[in-house]
């Protein structure tokens, strides 16, 4: 097991946002988490990343317990999050944003290797190469999402967690993002994908979880979920 989350509970003040969530991701999988607004999906990713301290539960990654580790040591272990709403550094250039992805390893990495990583990102998203000297704040929504994914990739993650990467993007761009995710997976990167675009997410996923009001209410193979009555009526608009 690459990532395992065991009965995780998270509170915001007195409000419980996660109520004993358990979830597993195996190496090389694409695991998708579906759920309506406010279900607790972002909360889940933020606590795995160590941004929200968890009061109860246990998170294991690659045989390390990361429940109470700092965000920076979690990134160093190989988990990188592409957060909801891109959160690129608007006042830095595209290239500098990509370089920020290398922050946790640039002192130890040979320059040529970093250049290679950069080429990999540019191959996936050629537009970023054209925009490399442009301030990230002036990029379009789609370009910012590509940049956020590229920045995550520069961190050389084993597990990449993406929080609604298709949010607010035009259908063509969404398609491109999903194609890229498949490409990342075939490069050997494991993906934990949060999506409201349930159909597209389940199409590329190996397995899926359904979250409602802070609980996992269903899990299964992606193709089974695509045919599940509840999933179809609640998330696939059928």
């Amino acid at each position: 097991m690459m990532l395992s989350v065991e009965s995780l509970s998270i509170y915001y003040g007195g409000i419980q946002a996660l109520k004993g969530v358990s979830l597993e991701v195996k190496e090389r999988e694409i695991v998708s988490v579906l759920g309506a607004n406010g279900a607790g999906k972002s909360t889940l990713l933020m606590s795995i990343s160590g941004i929200l301290p968890s009061r109860q539960g246990k998170i294991m990654f690659d045989n390390n317990e990361i429940t109470r580790q700092s965000p920076s040591s979690i990134v160093r272990l190989g988990i990188c999050q592409v957060p909801e709403g891109r959160e690129v550094f608007k006042s830095l250039t595209t290239l500098d944003n990509l370089r920020m992805g290398t922050y946790h390893h640039y002192r130890k990495s040979p320059k040529s290797l970093v250049e290679k990583d950069l080429e990999r990102v540019y191959t996936l998203f050629p537009i970023l190469k054209q925009r490399r000297t442009q301030m990230a704040g002036t990029l379009s929504g789609g370009e910012q999402q590509m940049l956020a994914i590229g920045r995550g990739l520069m961190a050389r993650p084993k597990l990449m967690m993406l929080d609604e990467p298709s949010l607010g993007l035009a259908p063509l761009v969404v398609e491109e993002i999903f194609r890229t995710l498949t490409a990342l997976n075939s490069m050997g990167i494991t993906l934990l994908l949060i999506e409201q675009n349930a159909r597209a997410a389940l199409k590329i996923a190996t397995r899926g979880y359904v979250m409602e009001t802070g609980k996992i209410i269903m899990e299964g193979r992606a193709e089974d979920l695509l045919e599940n009555e509840h999933v179809v009526s609640a998330y696939l608009g059928g």
Binding site: V75, E87, F89, L92, M100
Partner: peptide, 23 residues
Amino acid sequence: TLLGKAMRACAENPRAASLMGVN
């Protein structure tokens, strides 16, 4: 320097900076 840019990144968006491993 990347360190200086990381400091700017912290100033702009501390949470996103932490997600990149910036303390």
